[in-house]
């Protein structure tokens, strides 16, 4: 708990200054809303924002799980096949140079306005750090452990299951934590490219109406969602990697 209060104090101070500056300079809400205006939008638009949040949460969670599953599967294939690693890894890096902003509309054209294109955008944004970390984690198994396994009836599969995979879990999770912070942004991109609901859609609609406070409220919720996903992943790691000495991560 002690580690929590410095960022909280800093955040509270920033919000306080923000409120003071906006009031002192008489900035209109549609230009730059004060924190209190954002708070009252959260309360007034609770129904609208709540429904949108549910939609976006579904996209984030499903897309993220898809990313983790695909990333780990790809990492395992890359780990077992040198040929695949040589052929596929450069292409995966190349794929990251395609801007998601451009990918989203293409997927919307191909797959329509449903949840599928959003899942794919979220997954595309999230999977890369997981793949890279998982491949590194699998390859960094202690060769001494592998030698020991070989003299103890350990075949290739046993070495993978009992040494390489558990050993790679911390690395996989650090990739997964980085990816968790991208998921919300991915969902918004997906919604912007074509949707009729979700927090990204709320932002898109509020913009021409100059409902700036509502945009801020939606962004606030998106940040909270990303933070929540990050916390959930960290918790899962503590559960699945209990042998890890006291967390080296925040």
């Amino acid at each position: 708990m002690k580690r929590w209060w410095p960022p909280l104090v800093l955040l509270a101070a920033a919000v306080g200054i923000w409120e003071l500056v906006v009031r002192a300079a008489n900035v209109p809400d549609y230009l730059f809303p004060a924190p209190t205006a954002v708070a009252s939008s959260l309360a007034d638009d609770a129904g609208l924002l709540g429904r949108a949040t549910l939609v976006t949460v579904r996209e984030i969670v499903a897309g993220y799980l898809l990313a983790v599953a695909v990333a780990v599967a790809i990492a395992v294939v890359l780990h077992f096949s040198t040929a695949f690693r040589r052929a596929l890894l450069p292409l995966l890096v190349l794929s990251q140079t395609v801007p998601t902003v451009l990918l989203a509309p293409i997927l919307a054209i191909l797959l329509g306005y449903g949840i599928e294109p959003k899942l794919i955008v979220v997954a595309v944004v999230c999977f890369f750090p997981i793949v890279v970390n998982a491949v590194d984690g699998l390859r960094s198994a202690d060769p001494e452990l592998v030698r020991m396994m070989r003299t103890l009836h350990g075949g290739r599969l046993a070495i993978f299951r009992r040494v390489e995979l558990p050993g790679a879990l911390p690395a996989i999770f650090s990739g997964a934590r980085v990816a968790a912070t991208y998921a919300a942004v991915g969902a918004v991109f997906g919604e912007w490219a074509g949707s009729s609901s979700g927090l990204g859609f709320v932002i898109l609609q509020a913009q021409p109406a100059l409902e700036t406070a509502r945009i801020f409220a939606a962004v606030l919720i998106l940040s909270a969602l990303a933070l929540g996903l990050y916390a959930l992943v960290t918790l899962t790691e503590r559960f699945l990697v209990p042998w890890q000495p006291e967390a080296t991560h925040a």
Binding site: D142, L145, M149, G155, A158, R162, V241
Partner: peptide, 20 residues
Amino acid sequence: RDSLLPWRTALDNAALALEN
């Protein structure tokens, strides 16, 4: 080095070869 697997308990480490 002892090369025990950190994710296994002492008993499961000892039983490793049997599981393999």
